[in-house]
Design a protein around this nucleic acid. Structure first.
Length: 270
DNA sequence: AGTACCACCTGACGGC
DNA sequence: TGCCGTCAGGTGGTAC
């Protein structure tokens, strides 16, 4: 992946792809060396601690919750990775192939490297004991792929406010960001400014189904918009983008301060 | 509770 | 050509 050509916007599907990439490249190898190249991405830890806790150990397995990735090293020791908006992982053999904004570099005993790259330094890396502590501390809701319909319905119970911010609020559901919330609303025909208190049972169920479908499909396609089905709007989130269903020009508005694309013809449900 | 800001950051882009 | 302002987007903080 070339610098500046990063197609990933680290929301749930992207982080799931990172997880699978990590699992297939970086597990069960002794980590000879860890180099923190920019400590701005560290949260409640130091480069020294990262080094002393990780060197000599192995990544055993990983878990994802929302946009967070947790890599287990041993009992009571995991590495938390959050990718901000420009983060990704890269596994490579030659240092010539190191990505342009490598912030932490792991060296394995097989001669390969794993880099945590984060151009805008908005990501976070931290040493933790338990995943559940972090979910509690950050007040994260259930993961969008494992949330059941009853929890999902709670988002609409006794609440006001807009659907887009409700979907993006990590305390309600973990994993959905600006890009995928647009896709989910597009697929359900819901206007991005719709208010949650107007949602009836049928629409909530439909939204739930489409949410899972959009996220699972994106993962299946490696979170690469070039591979997305023809009826997805994400590849059209750009200047002169057209609705892949109606062919009309997409509208670009701001919702809760976020750039939002929608089809004025079929996203009418308020 | 919900909204409306700001800050953190870098680099791409448009205006002049 | 090059300088400068603006803005993307996740999270977290504050103020209303």
């Amino acid at each position: 992946m070339k610098i500046g050509e990063n197609k990933f916007m680290p929301e749930l599907p992207d982080v799931e792809v990172f997880k699978r990439y990590l699992d297939s490249t970086s597990l069960h190898k002794t980590i000879k060396k860890v180099e923190v190249k920019d400590k701005k991405i560290l949260e409640k830890t130091t480069a020294k601690k990262i080094k002393s806790k990780i060197e000599g150990k192995k990544f055993n397995d990983s878990k994802r919750h929302g946009k967070y990735l947790f890599i287990n090293l041993e009992k009571k020791l995991s590495l938390m990775l959050h990718f901000g908006m420009t983060g990704f992982l890269k596994y490579f053999k030659n240092m010539d192939d190191e990505s342009g904004h490598s912030r932490i570099l792991f060296t394995f005993d097989n001669g390969y490297y794993l880099s945590y790259d984060c151009q805008r330094l908005l990501g976070k890396v931290r040493l933790i004991e338990n995943i559940s502590d972090i979910i509690k501390e950050k007040n994260l809701g259930p993961d969008a792929l494992s949330i059941d319909i009853h929890f999902f319905k709670d988002i609409f119970e006794n609440k006001r406010g807009g659907i887009k911010s409700a979907l993006m609020n990590q305390k309600n559901i973990a994993g959905i960001g600006n890009i995928y919330s647009d896709e989910i609303l597009f697929q359900t025909g819901i206007h991005p400014k719709a208010k949650v208190n107007n949602f009836d049972e049928i629409l909530i169920k439909e939204l739930y189904t489409k949410m899972k479908n959009v996220l699972n499909t994106a993962i299946e396609k490696n979170a690469n918009p070039d591979n997305f089905p023809k009826n997805f709007v994400i590849p059209q989130r750009k200047k002169d983008g057209k609705c892949p269903i109606d062919g009309v020009a997409l509208k670009k508005i701001r919702v809760n301060g976020r750039e939002t694309y929608f089809c004025p013809k079929h996203q009418e449900k308020l």
